[in-house]
Amino acid sequence: MSENKTAEELPLYEVFIRSKNGLHHKHAGSLHAADAEMALTNARDVYTRRSEGVSIWVVKATDVIASNPEDKGSFYEPNDDKLYRHPTFYNIPDEVGHM
């Protein structure tokens, strides 16, 4: 019964919504749709029923490339010892005032 189940399942799309101009698109959730157009209209119906958005992106979930939480240490490590990238690393005398 379940052998062609996965073949039947509509592809998964991730939905990103810009709530108003000037703001980034933000991940809102996901949905299944046959194609991009259906994903867009369904995203409108499900995620913007109360004017939550002015722009929608849909991306096939399989096209999203994600980092791995297990790599957390080594992946971000190169930035951990570069304190000189932060403004607080530098000593500026108080007399100089706000900089």
Binding site: E8, L10, A33, A34, D35, M38
Partner: peptide
């Protein structure tokens, strides 16, 4: 409906 939507998407592709 789901089958038709998938077939349509396939055809468009």
């Amino acid at each position: 409906v789901r089958d038709a939507a998938l077939a349509y998407a396939e055809k468009q592709k």
